[in-house]
Design a protein around this nucleic acid. Structure first.
Lengths: 240, 240
DNA sequence: CGGATGCTTCGGCGCCCGCCGAAGCATCCG
DNA sequence: CGGATGCTTCGGCGGGCGCCGAAGCATCCG
């Protein structure tokens, strides 16, 4: 056989290998969990995924070797997190393409409860998502601070708004300031990129919102309601 | 075992299945080849990938069933193409993340020749790439028609430029007008999205550039050099 | 109509990979 | 120091999947 083979694209092997990292349901479970942007221990992920610790250990080694995860050893714990923003974006992009019909809806009450908290507000890697993320994105757009019609970019007024709000934007890196991230529960784009990260970081630091328990869901505080109302004209009702 | 399993993310199975479609080198070869945006027959792809027709037939069925490819039967031929722009973007995004060290450089003279033609100018799904794509993107940016510093979006002046050049933009669909696509050979972003597609389509229709043979490489014509110089101030030397 | 061409189906083979539990190592803590 | 905890390594098992060639079907063409 073969011989007739012409010039296989040299990227194919790497592409298949990269996709292969995500092409396992247990690893996919881990990557989606890590989308909260925080570090998990190997044991937490093993329990979360429902497999033996030994099994998960090997999965983590592959994901780290493949560059999707970064690890940090602390004593007898192995902490892993998504390697960087581009890794997070990759998982997001793939997850966003998954046909909505392919996701099974949660069944138990407890899951439904957690689900509705997540739908209200959560972090998506390092930016805000859920109705909260959408509300912020919509408000920025309505006020002419963010353009969505011709792409996805901050306007000059948007740059001034961040400056006036005292939210520092890191414009040195290669990371784009504004980027669209498709919201899983809302099925609409919300603000990601360096600006989205800065805004989320500020919101958590300033107490505009706090994490619920140990998950990625967040709740808007009274302080946060006032700030979002003053700075962006977001009504409290939208966030409930 | 198990029992301890908590709430696996319902998207995990779909995510793994989707990634699994790309996680095979032969299928990856096909997807990368199809990034030229045109339709290939099953036989062409089999020869290109260097596998038996029967093997490739099954691969195509899986890719079609998974929604990444669209097929069209004509007589005894089975034509396939990327299902839509989002499928193309998915493959691009994944390929862009492949570590540059992972791609082996071409070796033979013939491959090197094809490579340099590809590096000069080519189509990337439905927009321009290679030095040509970069030159156009840079020129649009330098003239204030495209913003890259705060995201990736056309400016109002950019909208007027397309209008004045007689290039119709389809703004009805959900597809973003401007989007960044990481150029494989240049390692820098070039213009994709509805505007990139419109520009590329116009360039081919107006004879600004023509396809070289049956591949995805394109060559800029004399007409094209004049047009690009007049409309965007692109010097001919850049395109060589 | 009959041979050539393109694709698909099928059976069979072999490899890869995900899974587990047992055993071992490192770390922490009383 | 010794037991508990967390992680890793190893052997073994089973299933899935990619590969092929042979055979069969549809289409095209002389």
């Amino acid at each position: 056989m073969l011989e007739g083979m012409t010039t296989r694209d040299p990227r194919a092997a790497g592409l298949a290998r990269l996709a292969g990292l995500i092409a396992d349901e247990t690893r996919a479970v881990c990557l989606l969990a890590l989308l909260d942007g925080r570090a998990w221990t190997a044991g937490e992920l093993a329990r979360h995924a429902g497999v033996a610790a030994s099994t998960l250990s090997e999965h983590l080694s592959r994901l780290v070797a493949g560059g999707l995860l970064a690890e940090e050893r602390q004593g007898r714990h192995r902490y892993v997190r998504l390697a960087d923003a581009t890794a997070a974006q990759l998982v997001e992009d793939l997850a966003a393409r998954v046909a909505p019909g392919d996701v099974r809806r949660p069944r138990t009450l407890r899951q439904a409860g957690a689900g509705s908290a997540m739908a209200r507000g959560r972090t998506c890697y390092d930016h805000l998502a859920g109705r909260l993320g959408i509300a912020v994105t919509d408000a920025l757009t309505a006020r002419g601070l963010l353009r969505q019609d011709t792409g996805f970019a901050l306007t000059d007024a948007g740059l001034r708004w961040f400056d006036a709000a005292g939210i520092a934007l890191d414009r040195r890196g290669r990371r784009p300031l504004a980027r669209a991230c498709l919201d899983w529960t809302e099925r609409r784009p919300h603000l990601a990129g360096a600006a989205g990260a800065a805004l989320c970081g500020h919101a958590l630091r300033a107490g505009w919102c706090v994490r619920i328990g140990s998950g990625r869901a967040v709740r808007v505080t009274d302080t946060g309601e006032r700030a979002l109302s003053e700075l962006l004209g977001i009504g409290a009702a939208v966030l409930r």
